[in-house]
Amino acid sequence: MRVRLILPALLAATALTLVGCGEEKSASSSGAAEKSSPTASGSSAPAGDGTAAVPETLRFTGTTVDGKPFDAATLAGKPTVLWFWAPWCPTCKAQGPETAKVAARFQGQAHVIGVAGLDKPQAMKDFVTDTGVGAFPNLADEAGGVWKKFEITQQSVYVILDKDGKTVFTGSLPAGKGLAGKVSPLVG
């Protein structure tokens, strides 16, 4: 009986130990890990303002690190970058400046949203301040709901959605290099 109780806990602890900062699963020709996501479905509903349909991928809500409510439905109709990061992750810190540049460059044409996890809200706030990524929304996903929705199992991962909410890239981009090149064709 005790083995049945201990084994699942041991497996869970092992899985958490294996989650690495910036670890890549497989490399594409660009050197970044990529996978297609089954969460990108074609179903959509009208947006609250009636301008664009809201795809399933953008049907989630949350709270930003500064305590403001966030509804992803407001992102419908434009390409979106979701950047999954953890405050203690050096790879994530290295991605911050380039992610902020891409957010500024494509402001009004595409959305950039940080999705913080794997730590407490104060550490998330400190990361935003320390890395200068406060010009775009950063969600405090302490419970991991958005991470689960996009099947993210490690930090320092980008998920890029086209204007229809279809996932076109999922992977790590060391220091954020190549992010602008992935967003640029989506806004053109």
Rank of each mutant, 00 (worst) to 15 (best):
G96R: 00
V102M: 12
P90L: 12
D71Q: 07
T99D: 11
L58K: 10
D164E: 12
R59P: 05
G165M: 08
T51N: 12
Q95S: 05
Y158T: 07
W85C: 09
W147N: 01
T57F: 03
T80A: 14
P55H: 10
I152V: 14
S44C: 13
F136R: 11
I113W: 01
L58Q: 06
K163L: 05
W85M: 00
V159C: 06
G117I: 04
V168N: 04
V112A: 11
L173H: 04
S41T: 14
H111I: 09
A86V: 10
G67M: 05
H111T: 09
A40Q: 11
A76I: 11
P46V: 11
I160Y: 03
K182Y: 02
F127R: 01
D164Y: 06
A53R: 15
E142T: 15
P121S: 03
V183H: 03
K120H: 14
W147H: 10
P55L: 01
E98Q: 14
F136T: 05
A103I: 09
P87G: 13
T51K: 15
H111Y: 10
L82C: 05
Q155A: 11
C89N: 12
E56C: 00
G165L: 04
G181R: 06
Q122A: 13
T129K: 13
Q155H: 09
F106Y: 13
P121M: 08
F136D: 01
F150M: 02
G96L: 09
A104S: 14
I152A: 04
I113E: 01
